[in-house]
Write a protein that binds this DNA or RNA. Structure first.
Lengths: 132, 132
DNA sequence: TTTAATATCTATAGCCACTATAGAGTCAAG
DNA sequence: CTTGACTCTATAGTGGCTATAGATATTAAA
């Protein structure tokens, strides 16, 4: 199987698959005479795994670490658990930030009374004042 | 006033101030004989304005646009309002994504029953299955 | 006055996870 | 035998900084 076919099956851009190779997340089975990458079907599962992890916003280095642990089934599960918990923490922090952001932005839009002229715009006035 | 003093007053790294200059968000009033940037006090307000906007996660190009409109007080307010509304929309989308993420990640941690061994780890098993 | 410390300068590279481009080579169908 | 689709490598760009190296400038202490 060549890279284009892998791309179609996984719905990942060809470039991305090559990029994952440079990051040592996957390996091709070898090359053709013409230097084209050849893959066996195993890579589809690997890429789907990566996709799933990326969907959870795990970093490529986290994914790499999880892969290393997967290859070593006697390893202790704790590290994977910590990794996911850290991710949950990060997501919670980001959500909190966004909630704050939303509040501030909505206050801004409320301060625009459609005055038409920028010189009278409540938004710009508000941006000039500091409420941090 | 030299850049170090501006940095202290605004609590922005010197590098960042220079970076904002390369992006045409601010200008120095000129240079000393020794080629050091010189600023007048106006720049403090400008940087505080930028800080405030960045705090709202507005992009530097958005900030630049707002500045252009500010310099032209007869411009129509609508564009600023749209810009902020778009930002609110983006924030809402991101929040939605994060809520989804959080749900999935928390389901994952629940599936780790502290089995100790990676080979039995519910998290890794779950990551292998696709529930998209 | 010398010297040492501090501040500033430019230019460049790194971060992350891709994405896009250029230019060259490979391969299959008509 | 040519056309077009595919693949290859290498490189640059994205955003908003941050960090570094190496040079120059200024200030304070000895």
């Amino acid at each position: 199987m060549k890279i284009g076919q892998v791309s179609k099956k996984t719905d990942l851009p060809v470039q991305t698959i090559r990029y994952y190779e440079t990051q040592n997340l996957i390996k091709s089975a070898g090359r053709t005479e013409g230097n084209f990458r050849v893959y066996d079907s195993k890579v589809i599962d690997q890429l789907e795994f990566i996709k799933h992890c990326r969907h959870l916003d795990l970093s490529l280095s986290d994914i790499k670490r999880i892969n290393e642990l997967r290859d070593n089934p006697n390893a202790v599960c704790e590290e994977v658990n910590e990794l996911i918990n850290d991710q949950v923490k990060m997501v919670k922090i980001k959500m909190k930030e966004l909630r704050h952001l939303k509040t501030q932005l909505e206050a801004l839009t409320d301060s625009c009374s459609n005055n038409q002229k920028v010189g009278d715009c409540g938004i710009i006035k508000s941006l000039q004042e500091c409420d941090c």
